[in-house]
Each structure stands twice: as structure tokens, then as C-alpha cells.
Deep mutational scan, measured.
Amino acid sequence: MTVLPKDIPGDSLKVTVGTANGKPGDTVTVPVTFADVAKMKNVGTCNFYLGYDASLLEVVSVDAGPIVKNAAVNFSSSASNGTISFLFLDNTITDELITADGVFANIKFKLKSVTAKTTTPVTFKDGGAFGDGTMSKIASVTKTNGSVTIDP
């Protein structure tokens, strides 16, 4: 049996954390987006972790974005102690894959008090994996961190 590389060099799934701005007490939304989904033969499963400074940001909610089908079954998240974990699994293993680019999740943060303008990162942590529509590992994932700026 011969195994051929399935990824064209330079191609990767792009996962990007967005940015937001606000004043202390505001609730802002930071999107997590996927790009080049079709090039990577869709997404059938993924789990990953984001870190944030809990002294500056309070997670209000984490909701599935419009590219997630049947989110009540296929999407899960949790947030505590400065870490947000995400889990997606197409429970049907074929019919509810992520097949389009767009917003995977929206994180709502309540901004805490600061004395001066502060930009705090929302960054990928170690761990996690992504699988394509056949549940094979997506070897190349380009992750881009985001941030939230609090301006009193």
C-alpha cells in the first residue's frame, strides 16, 4: 500500500482569532474563523484551546458560528481559569461536516476595569488537533492569535 501526501505544500487550514475593542463593562464579541476549508477536504472534527487573561476578560458565552451545522449536538465549549476549550465533531461522520469558510465560534467577553488603554492577547495554547471530512488528521493548520483592547 502506498500512502501519498494529501496536502499540497503551502496549503493549510487557517484558524484565526479576531479582535475587538471596548470600554470597561462593555461586552464584545471576538470571532474565531476558519478559511481554506474546502482545500483541506472539509473539517469533520477539531479540538483546540485559547488562552486569555482572566483578570482583564470575563467569558460571558461561547457560541457556535454559522458554519457549524447542528451545533447543539456537534459543538461544545467550556471556559475557566483563562482557557477556553473548543470541540467539534460531526456526529453523523459525513452529513454535518464544516464545508465552508466563515465564523466557527463567537466568544463574548465582558471587559474588566483598567486604568490605561490595554491590549490583551487571545492566543492559541498547545494541544488539540483538526481532522478532515474523512477524519484524517489535517497536518497543516495555520493559527493566528487575536486580541481585545480595553480603553477606559
Results as ranks from 00 to 15, higher is better:
Val114Pro: 08
Lys117Ala: 03
Lys6Thr: 10
Gly133Asn: 04
Ser61Ala: 12
Ala139His: 15
Asn106Gly: 03
Val148Ala: 08
Gly146Tyr: 06
Ala79His: 15
Ala71Gln: 09
Leu97Cys: 03
Leu4His: 09
Asp132Tyr: 04
Phe88Ser: 03
Gly51Lys: 13
Leu87Trp: 03
Thr45Lys: 02
Gly102Arg: 03
Tyr49Pro: 00
Thr144Phe: 04
Leu56Val: 12
Leu4Gln: 11
Ile8Phe: 13
Leu50Gln: 08
Ile93Gly: 00
Ala54His: 11
Asp36Ile: 07
Cys46Arg: 03
Asp53Gly: 10
Gly10Ile: 12
Leu13Lys: 10
Phe104Leu: 03
Val68Ser: 10
Lys23Pro: 10
Gly127Trp: 03
Gly18Tyr: 12
Pro31Tyr: 07
Lys112Tyr: 03
Val15Met: 07
Ala71Ser: 11
Pro9Gln: 08
Asn21Met: 10
Thr119Ala: 13
Phe34Lys: 10
Lys112Pro: 03
Ser12Tyr: 14
Glu58Thr: 09
Asp151Gly: 15
Asn42Ile: 10
Asn47Trp: 00
Lys137Gly: 00
Gly65Glu: 09
Phe109Ala: 01
Leu56Arg: 10
Ala139Val: 06
Asn106His: 08
Thr83Trp: 15
Ser147Pro: 04
Ile107Gly: 00
Ile84Thr: 05
Ser61Met: 14
Thr29Met: 14
Leu4Ser: 10
Ile8Arg: 09
Ile98Gln: 02
Ala100Pro: 05
Ser80Val: 14
Lys112Ala: 03
Asp53Leu: 09
Glu96Gln: 14
Val3Met: 06
Ala54Asp: 11
Asp126Leu: 15
Leu87His: 04
Asp36Val: 13
Asn145Ser: 07
Pro152Val: 14
Ser78Thr: 06
Thr123Cys: 06
Asp53Ala: 10
Met1Leu: 10
Phe130Met: 04
Ile138Phe: 04
Pro66Tyr: 14
Thr142Ile: 07
Ser147Arg: 06
Asp7Ser: 11
Thr119Val: 02
Ala116Gly: 06
Ser136Val: 01
Asn70Cys: 14
Phe109Tyr: 04
Val122Asn: 07
Ile107Glu: 01
Thr29Arg: 09
Lys23Tyr: 13
Ser55Tyr: 12
Cys46Ser: 03
Gly22Trp: 08
Ile107Tyr: 02
Leu87Ser: 13
Glu58Val: 13
Ala105Lys: 01
Ala79Met: 15
Ser55Ile: 13
Ser12Ala: 11
Asp26Phe: 09
Asp90Gln: 00
Ala35Ile: 11
Ile8Thr: 12
Thr144Val: 05
Met40Ala: 08
Ile84Asp: 02
Thr27Asn: 11
Thr144Met: 04
Thr83Arg: 15
Asp101Lys: 06
Asn106Arg: 05
Glu96Ala: 07
Asn81Glu: 15
Lys117Leu: 04
Val103Asp: 06
Leu56Thr: 08
Thr142Glu: 04
Val148Gly: 09
Val141Glu: 00
Thr120Glu: 13
Val15Tyr: 05
Ile107Leu: 04
Val73Met: 06
Asn81Cys: 15
Thr92Glu: 00
Ser80Tyr: 06
Phe75Trp: 05
Lys125Tyr: 07
Val122Gly: 05
Ser78Trp: 15
Glu58Gln: 10
Met40Cys: 14
Glu58Ile: 14
Gly25Ala: 10
Glu58Pro: 03
Val37Gln: 14
Thr33Arg: 11
Gly25Asp: 11
Met40Tyr: 09
Thr123Arg: 14
Asn70Trp: 04
Pro5Val: 06
Val62Thr: 12
Ala72Asn: 15
Asp126Met: 15
Asp63Val: 09
Ser76Phe: 09
Thr144Arg: 07
Asp126Val: 15
Tyr49Arg: 01
Asn81Arg: 15
Pro5Asp: 08
Lys69Tyr: 10
Asp7Arg: 14
Lys39Met: 08
Asp95Leu: 02
Ser140Cys: 04
Phe124Ile: 02
Thr16Pro: 12
Val43Ser: 09
Ile84Val: 07
Phe34Gln: 07
Lys6Glu: 09
Lys39Cys: 13
Ala105Trp: 02
Lys112Trp: 01
Cys46Ala: 01
Gly51Thr: 08
Ala105Met: 00
Gly133Tyr: 04
Thr123Leu: 06
Pro5His: 08
Leu97Met: 06
Val59Trp: 09
Asp90Pro: 02
Glu58Phe: 09
Thr119Met: 12
Thr83Ala: 09
Thr134Arg: 14
Ala116Lys: 08
Met135Leu: 03
Val62Ala: 11
Asp132Gly: 03
Thr115Leu: 05
Thr120Arg: 14
Ser80Glu: 01
Gly146Trp: 01
Thr119Ile: 11
Pro24Glu: 13
Ile93Cys: 02
Lys41Gly: 11
Leu87Pro: 03
Thr19Arg: 13
Ala71Lys: 12
Lys143Asn: 03
Val141His: 02
Pro9Met: 13
Gly102Lys: 01
Ser55Met: 08
Ile67Gly: 08
Pro9Lys: 14
Val59Met: 11
Thr94His: 03
Thr99Trp: 05
Thr27Glu: 11
Gly146Phe: 06
Gly10Pro: 13
Asn21Val: 13
Ile67Gln: 12
Thr120Met: 03
Ile67His: 14
Asn21Gly: 08
Thr19Trp: 14
Pro66Phe: 13
Phe88Trp: 02
Thr27Cys: 13
Leu57Thr: 12
Val73Ile: 14
Leu111Arg: 03
Gly82Cys: 15
Pro9Asn: 08
Ile138Tyr: 01
Thr2Ala: 13
Ser61Cys: 07
Phe130Thr: 01
Ile98Arg: 03
Leu57Cys: 07
Gly127Arg: 15
Ala64Lys: 06
Thr29Pro: 12
Asp101Leu: 03
Val17Ser: 09
Ala72Gly: 13
Ser76Thr: 02
Phe34His: 06
Lys117Phe: 03
Phe109Pro: 00
Phe104Gly: 00
Gly18Thr: 13
Val103Pro: 11
Val15Thr: 09
Gly51Met: 12
Asn21His: 12
Thr115Asp: 07
Leu89Pro: 02
Pro9Tyr: 08
Asp36Phe: 14
Pro121Ala: 06
Val68Ala: 09
Pro152Ala: 15
Thr99Cys: 05
Ile138Ala: 04
Lys39Leu: 13
Leu87Asp: 01
Ile98Leu: 05
Leu13Ala: 11
Gly146Thr: 07
Ile8Gly: 15
Ser80Met: 15
Val59Pro: 09
Ala100Leu: 05
Gly133His: 04
Val37Met: 06
Gly18Lys: 12
Ile150Phe: 15
Lys117Cys: 05
Val103Met: 03
Lys14Asn: 09
Thr33Val: 07
Thr142Asn: 07
Val60Pro: 06
Leu4Trp: 13
Ser12Cys: 14
Thr120Asp: 06
Ser55Gln: 07
Gly133Thr: 02
Val103Gln: 05
Asp63Pro: 09
Lys41Gln: 09
Val59His: 08
Gly25Ser: 09
Val17Asn: 01
Ile8Ser: 11
Ile107Cys: 01
Val37Tyr: 05
Phe130Asp: 00
Pro31Thr: 12
Asp132Gln: 04
Phe109Trp: 08
Val103Ser: 06
Ile93Trp: 14
Phe48Leu: 07
Lys69Trp: 12
Gly44Ser: 03
Asp11Leu: 09
Phe86Pro: 01
Asp7Met: 05
Thr33Tyr: 12
Ala35Gln: 14
Thr27Gly: 08
Ser113Gln: 05
Phe130Asn: 00
Asp26Gln: 11
Ala116His: 06
Val148Gln: 04
Thr33Ala: 14
Gly44Ala: 03
Ile84Ala: 00
Phe124Leu: 04
Ser80Asn: 14
Thr123Gln: 06
Asp101Met: 01
Asn47Lys: 03
Pro121Ser: 08
Ala129Met: 00
Val28Gly: 09
Ser140Gly: 12
Gly65Cys: 08
Lys137Met: 00
Ala71Pro: 13
Asn70Thr: 10
Asn106Leu: 06
Asp126Arg: 15
Gly10Phe: 10
Lys125Cys: 02
Phe34Asn: 09
Met1Arg: 14
Ser113Trp: 06
Val32Lys: 03
Asp151Tyr: 15
Lys23Ile: 09
Val43Met: 06
Ile150Val: 14
Ala100Cys: 05
Val30Arg: 07
Thr123Ala: 08
Phe34Val: 06
Lys110Val: 05
Phe75Ile: 02
Leu97Trp: 15
Phe86Ile: 07
Lys14Leu: 09
Pro31Gln: 11
Ser136Thr: 03
Leu87Phe: 03
Ala54Ile: 13
Thr115Tyr: 03
Asp126Lys: 15
Val122Phe: 12
Ala79Tyr: 15
Thr120Val: 07
Asn70Glu: 08
Pro9Gly: 14
Pro66Val: 10
Ala20Leu: 13
Tyr52Thr: 13
Val3Leu: 12
Thr144Ala: 06
Cys46Met: 14
Ala116Leu: 05
Val30Cys: 07
Phe104Cys: 02
Ala71Gly: 14
Leu4Arg: 11
Gly102Ile: 12
Gly51Arg: 13
Ile67Val: 11
Glu96Asp: 06
Ala38Tyr: 11
Asn106Ser: 04
Ser113Asn: 05
Ala20Met: 12
Ala129Ser: 03
Ala129Tyr: 00
Phe34Thr: 08
Gly25Arg: 11
Thr83Glu: 05
Pro5Ala: 09
Val68Pro: 10
Phe88Tyr: 04
Asp36His: 11
Ile67Ala: 14
Tyr52Asn: 09
Ser12Trp: 07
Asn106Phe: 07
Ala20His: 09
Pro121Asp: 05
Lys69Met: 07
